[in-house]
Simulated scan of single mutants.
Amino acid sequence: MTATDTAAQHRLGMVLVASSAGVFGLAGILTKSIDADPLTITSWRGLIGGLLMSAYVLWRRRGAGGESLHLGWQGWLLAVLGTISSITFIAAFKNTYVANVVVIYATVPFVVALFAWLIVGEMFRRQTAIAAAICLAGVAVMVWSGLGGGHGFGDGLALLMTCLFALYAALVRRFRDAPVVWAGAVSAFLGIIPAWFVADPLTVPPASIPPVITFGFTFALAVILWTEGARRIPAAEAGLLGTAEVPCGIFFAWLFLAELPPAASLIGGAIVLAAVFWHAWRDWANARNAAMPSRLIEKESQKA
């Protein structure tokens, strides 16, 4: 691959990951636009999104490429954990502000680092510890304000969802041979099961059908965009671009729902966002500096 092709792939990766963050940011407004309980929403999102993700996995498997369809116990563990975190994710949106959920969820990289240290033995970096401590203070401000404003339960669900997804991400690092995207598709299908025992998914009001279909489509689209984009750019850069999901989610909630959280939530959110962006920027800058010598050598070799 020539330098021009590499640069083109890099630009494409940036666009795909940034687009994925924007699509992920629609989750809050779509959840609140659907007049149904969290299990029903999860079931329909899982059915539509799971079908689309399965088609993507099968498309990737054409020829000799793509993931294996054999989950094994590791893949099934990821699938079940993903289903539980998805249900909690949607329930959190139903019980608190969109801004609170997306900001608390933004702390995932730091919780992942903690679980990765406990499960995989990865070193917990100093800058990560500093950013995590700042985030903890910001989340404490948000949750404390929610207790007095009737949103404490939703904030608690957002915290639980964040921990569950962080555990999922840490296990992905531990189970390096597990078919992650296929496990995500199976996880989406598993989300259909609880609704049939507890709720009645067929009772979705006609007015909620378009956002339900859109939710399933955007769920699969965001996963596919992220998967394809992350293949083309460094992990640090993908992490930095992925943080765009937070301002996108808050902006969409304000634009479409006229939802503005209380001052305490905004203050706590600003603290968390400052820590997240600082950490992501440091990762990106460090990765760029580390890659600089190899780029210079490549340029010199091309001149020669």
Rank of each mutant, 00 (worst) to 15 (best):
M1W: 15
A3F: 13
D5N: 12
A8E: 10
H10S: 13
M14S: 15
M14G: 15
V15Q: 10
V17P: 00
A18K: 05
S20G: 15
G28E: 05
I29H: 09
T31E: 07
K32R: 15
D37P: 14
L39F: 11
I41G: 07
T42F: 09
G49P: 01
L52F: 12
A55Y: 07
A55Q: 08
L58E: 09
R60C: 10
G63L: 04
G66C: 07
W73N: 13
G75L: 01
G75R: 02
W76N: 08
L77M: 12
I84L: 14
T88F: 14
T88G: 13
T88I: 12
F89K: 00
A91M: 08
F93T: 03
N95I: 07
T96V: 01
T96C: 01
Y97G: 07
V101A: 05
V102H: 04
I104V: 08
V108S: 11
L114A: 13
W117V: 09
M123S: 15
R126W: 11
I130W: 05
A133N: 03
I134P: 00
C135R: 02
L136E: 06
W144H: 12
W144S: 13
G146E: 05
G146T: 00
L147K: 10
G150F: 07
G152R: 01
G154D: 01
G156C: 01
G156A: 07
A158G: 05
T162M: 14
F165A: 06
Y168P: 11
Y168H: 14
A169P: 11
L171V: 06
V172E: 09
D177R: 15
D177K: 14
A178D: 00
P179S: 02
F189V: 06
W196N: 12
F197S: 01
V198R: 00
A199G: 10
D200H: 14
D200F: 07
P201S: 02
P206W: 06
I209L: 12
P210V: 02
A220Y: 09
L221H: 07
I224T: 08
L225F: 10
L225S: 04
A230V: 15
P234Q: 06
L240E: 08
L241P: 02
L241K: 03
G242D: 08
T243E: 05
A244Q: 09
C248E: 09
G249S: 00
F251H: 03
F252N: 02
A253M: 04
A253H: 05
A258N: 13
E259H: 06
P261R: 03
P262S: 02
S265E: 14
S265D: 14
G268I: 01
G269D: 00
I271Y: 03
V272F: 05
L273K: 03
A274L: 13
A274M: 08
A274H: 05
V276I: 09
H279P: 05
A280D: 04
D283C: 13
A285S: 13
A287E: 09
A287T: 09
A287F: 05
R288L: 10
N289T: 12
A291P: 02
M292L: 14
S294I: 10
R295S: 13
R295G: 11
E298C: 11
E298P: 07
Q302F: 10
